[in-house]
Write a protein that binds this DNA or RNA. Structure first.
Length: 431
RNA sequence: GCUCCCAUCGUCUAGAGGCCUAGGACACAGCCCUCUCAAGGCUGGUACGGGGGUUCGAAUCCCCCUGGGAGCGCCA
């Protein structure tokens, strides 16, 4: 079945590795099944969303090697920025209203905060207390007259079992009694995540919602809304969260784990993709996977349930593979900024081919360029100490061996090795 | 507190009752190769969180515990 998936970030910060992975997974699911991949921007929170972040998002995603069939920049049959979908939300909101499933809530954030804290302190679930649930028409009118701003809540039905199938976690069942009435429209008129996110998925024909584990317990709320509106309910795949190297969930503390940061440090997108695809997803093959191979490898059934830790050592392994899989032209371009500016094309090509196995990041080319084309102004410290360590006897032996005209270089080395009992670095470093 | 999720080497994982004296990859160590380094080749060590069941037999099934995580937001 062709899967229609989406990536729905909010442009409120840099794209971190966890998001990048769900994006990649969603992309692969769609591409592999011959379906469509949609980019939708969830920018209903005006205060936190910014245009700079949106631009950065496009940059990061493109660098990462993803493309989408529909989205704010490439168009499609819908509007892909939630900020521009107000009229649509309004329409579905009023349907919910007509069905008697919403009510205005006049509680202030401060009051709700106090409620929550006292519930927690009393050992009770911090759910909406239901203060405004059964207000009479008169009571509402009174508050309207006073100009109290109202948010809109969804009236969660009592005693209902909500069940769904999750592609990674299996059957899930929740009791609606454990869910408090939640806000679907803020006092400022904008719609909240639970509502707009679910509506958009349904309206855009998304049939597989692939997202982080953290949404698993939120899913019944969204199903309740979709059911009330008689909108199609997608399949779900809640992938395990990605953990930082310290085993803690990715957070601001792991700022260095944004896609942008890795890019700046010289990592290649393919390296990041190969590492990410193997975090919480098993591949049947061990080696390097390009985009096509990834499409073939990806399977919902191979998604793991446990959270995985990002591991820089493994990322660096894939980085080496990524460098090895660059075409010679691409490799030369990549290290270009670190080559001597007046180097002719032919010598640059020879140099690039020679140093390639030694290079992990483009800046590494700089020191090799110095070795090849520059004058070495100083010896490396380790060479210096090796020279001192070898001492006079070594150099006397070396001098003897090298003064004999009848020997090839290799033979000289062998002789010297035998004479001094040295081999490997202990032989070559001082030499 | 309530609801839900998760648990195999240091890390990523294979494992859907006997094929497991638990396999692979990364990392690590040793050796080989070698005009250093890198690359490459070979070898090695280290894991089923604990306790109960079920079964002829359990890493695999059930229960409890422990540990980790998520959600319960006018964030998404």
């Amino acid at each position: 079945m062709p899967l229609v998936t989406r990536f729905a970030p909010s442009p409120s910060g840099l794209l971190h590795l966890g998001n990048a992975r769900t994006a990649l997974l969603s992309y692969l699911a769609a591409r592999q099944s011959g379906g469509r991949f949609i980019l939708r921007v969830e920018d209903t929170d005006q205060a936190r969303s910014s245009d700079e972040h949106l631009q950065a998002l496009f940059t990061d995603l493109h660098w990462f090697g993803l493309d989408w069939d529909e989205g704010p920049d490439v168009g499609g049959p819908h509007e892909y920025r939630q900020r521009c979908r107000g009229a649509i939300y309004q329409e579905w909101l009023s349907r919910l209203d007509l069905a008697g499933l919403t009510y205005p809530c006049y509680c202030t954030p401060a009051q709700l905060n106090i409620d929550r804290k006292s519930q927690l302190a009393a050992g009770k679930p911090p759910r909406y207390a239901g203060t405004c649930r059964e207000l009479s028409i008169e009571q509402r009118a009174e508050r309207e007259v006073q100009g109290v701003p109202a948010a809109l809540r969804f009236r969660v039905p009592a005693g209902q079992l909500v069940s769904f199938h999750d592609a990674v976690h299996g059957e899930q069942r929740f009791d609606s009694d454990d869910i408090g009435d939640f806000i679907i429209r803020r006092a400022d008129g904008s719609t909240a995540f639970f509502f707009s996110n679910a509506i958009d998925d349904a309206l855009m024909g998304i049939n597989l919602v692939l997202r982080g584990d953290d949404h698993l317990t939120n899913t019944p709320r969204q199903i309740l809304i979709l059911q009330a509106l008689e909108l199609p309910i997608p399949d779900y795949a809640h992938v395990a969260l990605l953990l930082g190297m310290d085993g803690a969930p990715l957070s601001k503390r792991h700022g260095a784990l944004s896609l942008a940061d890795l890019r700046q440090r010289g990592f290649l997108p393919g390296a990041v993709r190969n590492h990410l695809l193997r975090l919480g997803h098993t591949c049947t093959r061990d080696g390097w996977l390009d985009d096509e191979a990834m499409r073939a490898e990806f399977s919902l059934s191979r998604l793991g349930k446990a959270a995985a830790k990002f591991d820089e050592a493994q990322l660096r392994h894939w980085q080496k593979e990524a460098v090895a899989h660059l075409s010679s032209a691409a490799f030369q371009d990549w290290i270009g900024p670190y080559l001597p500016p007046q180097l002719d094309a032919q010598r640059a090509g020879v140099f690039a081919a020679a140093v390639r196995p030694n290079i992990e990041f483009p800046a590494d080319a700089k020191q090799w360029a110095e070795v090849a084309f520059g004058t070495l102004a100083h010896y490396a410290p380790e060479a210096m100490s090796a020279m001192l360590e070898a001492g006079e006897p070594f150099y006397e032996a070396a001098s003897a061996v090298f003064s004999r005209p009848d020997l090839e270089f290799k033979q000289r080395i062998r002789e010297l090795g035998q004479a001094t009992g040295r081999k490997g670095p202990a032989l070559f470093m001082p030499l």
